[in-house]
Structure formats: structure tokens, C-alpha cells
């Protein structure tokens, strides 16, 4: 059988919020290592990849590797039934038709049990090559969310330019141009407010703000976001989640042809 108990159940709710608008259905692959998921959006422009390590659960039991084919909208609806301080357990048989979600209140006075039908999903697994990135930008996740929100008011795309002076996000639309520049080590928040840039080569690339905005749904999961950028390559946007794993998104660039 498979059983994974997450004491901080709110994390599962947050992971769900971070993927449900991007991916309609996906396999949750459960192995001894933990729970992982890789899925593209329907237009194959972006990809989400997440890992919840087994040691983040207490207990975690996986007798046999299984894939839980899940409709994200259905699972998101069930996760909304869990309270933020609930302990969440995911459970299934070795050859499952269903998955069970159990929500326990902290004092165990209330136990909710939701059983959901699984789907047979033929998912396409993409091999992501190890890339040497031109620039790796770390910044407060809330700041990245703010930049995507603000520039969405100006245009559909954001041009990310990174050089020795820092990183600039710019958008252009019918009404004009917006530019947001961040300098390295600028303190934006009181805590975790550092902007750091690891620069190998100056780089400039354009991405659709619609998808980056989907990615920022992961903001409640982490204080810091890392953008890894390489010329004419997809950007990797990573949120590392304390004690359990990560959620990583990839987005193909817009390129002049």
C-alpha cells in the first residue's frame, strides 16, 4: 500500500494551488524517494515539476511504485475541504482505482475522509537537459510576483535582461513601456530580501507574462524564487520548499524568427 502523512497539511493545499491553473491532469508518481509530478500545460509551452521527499512525511510508506492519475480540478476541490492546520494523509492500494485523502484536525476531534476516482493518464515525460545557465537570479518570491503583476498591466511579455549592473524586467504595450530594475544585494524586505545574481554571461530573453503569473501561484510556498536564464533556452523558475522539496517551472521563450 501507499500512505503518506503530512503533518503540515497546508503545504499540500499550497502545492495544489501552485499547479491547478497550469495543468489539467497529471500522474503523481509515488516511489520510495517521495512523490513527484511532471506535467506540461495543454499548449506545451510550460512545464511544472515538483518533488515532495519521503522524509518530509511522517510516516511515509510505499510498498510498490505507483502512479496516481489525478484530475487537478477535482483534487483542488477536495484540498479546499482541508483546514490549514489539518494533518493530511494520502493513501491508496498497490493497484489503485481510487485515492483517499484524510484530513485530521490537530486535536483529532474531526476526521474527514475523501475518496477520489483515479484516471488513466498517458503522460509524456520530458527529459530536461542539464544546462549551464548564463545567469541565476535569486530574489524574494513576493517581489517576483509583484513584478509579474505590475508588468502585466503594461504588456503580454516581459523581457528579462541580466548583466553586471543587475537585472531588468521590461514590458511594452499599446500604452507604453514599463521597466523595473533590481540591483544585486538590494535589500527589499526586512528578511530574505536579498537579490543575488550569479552571472556567467549577459543575457536577454522574452517570456509570456501569462505563464510567469501562473508560476507565481507558488509564492506562498517559499520566501525566495530562483530564475535560471540562458540565451534562447527555457527559463527555470524554482521555489524551494523547506524540509520537503521543491516546485520548479520551465517556460519556453519567445524568439525572433
Amino acid at each position: 500500500m501507499f500512505e503518506a502523512r503530512l503533518v503540515q497539511g497546508s503545504l499540500m493545499k499550497k502545492f495544489m494551488e501552485a499547479i491547478k491553473d497550469l495543468v489539467k491532469e497529471a500522474n503523481w508518481d509515488c516511489t520510495g524517494t517521495g512523490i513527484s509530478l511532471q506535467a506540461m500545460d495543454t499548449s506545451h509551452v510550460s512545464l511544472v515539476s515538483l518533488l515532495l521527499r519521503s522524509d518530509g512525511f511522517d510516516p511515509y510508506r510505499c510498498d510498490r511504485n505507483i502512479s496516481l492519475g489525478i484530475n487537478m480540478e477535482s483534487m483542488a476541490k477536495i484540498m479546499k475541504c482541508a483546514s490549514n492546520d489539518d494533518v493530511i494523509t494520502i493513501r491508496s492500494e498497490d493497484h489503485p482505482d481510487n485515492v483517499t485523502f484524510v484530513f485530521e484536525s490537530p486535536n483529532q476531534e474531526k476526521v474527514c475522509d475523501y475518496e477520489m476516482k483515479l484516471m488513466d493518464i498517458d503522460s509524456e515525460h520530458l527529459g530536461i537537459p542539464d544546462t549551464e545557465y548564463d545567469a541565476i537570479i535569486s530574489m524574494p518570491a513576493s517581489e517576483f510576483q509583484r513584478i509579474c503583476r505590475d508588468l502585466s498591466n503594461i504588456g503580454d511579455s516581459v523581457k528579462i535582461t541580466c548583466n553586471k549592473d543587475g537585472v531588468q524586467f521590461s514590458a511594452q504595450g499599446d500604452t507604453g513601456i514599463g521597466k523595473i530594475a533590481l540591483k544585486q544585494n538590494a535589500v527589499i524586505d526586512k528578511e530574505d530580501g536579498q537579490v543575488s545574481i550569479e552571472l556567467n554571461d549577459p543575457v536577454s530573453l522574452t517570456f509570456a507574462l501569462r505563464y510567469l503569473t501562473f508560476f507565481t501561484k507558488a509564492t506562498p510556498l517559499a520566501s525566495t524564487v530562483t530564475l535560471s536564464v540562458s540565451a534562447k533556452n527555457p527559463v527555470a523558475v524554482e521555489y524551494r520548499v523547506d524540509d520537503i522539496g521543491y516546485i520548479r517551472y520551465y517556460l519556453a521563450p519567445k524568439i525572433e524568427e
Binding site: 515525460h125 520530458l126 533556452n233 520551465y250 519556453a252 519567445k254 524568439i255 525572433e256
Partner: peptide, 14 residues
């Protein structure tokens, strides 16, 4: 103009 690329242009199907 700019063309939106597909991820499949970059990542291989495993």
C-alpha cells in the same frame, strides 16, 4: 515579431 516556442523544441521526449 516574436514567436512563442514550444518546450518540445528544447526538451527531449523521454
Amino acid at each position: 515579431g516574436l514567436t512563442q516556442k514550444s518546450l518540445k523544441d528544447f526538451f527531449s521526449t523521454a
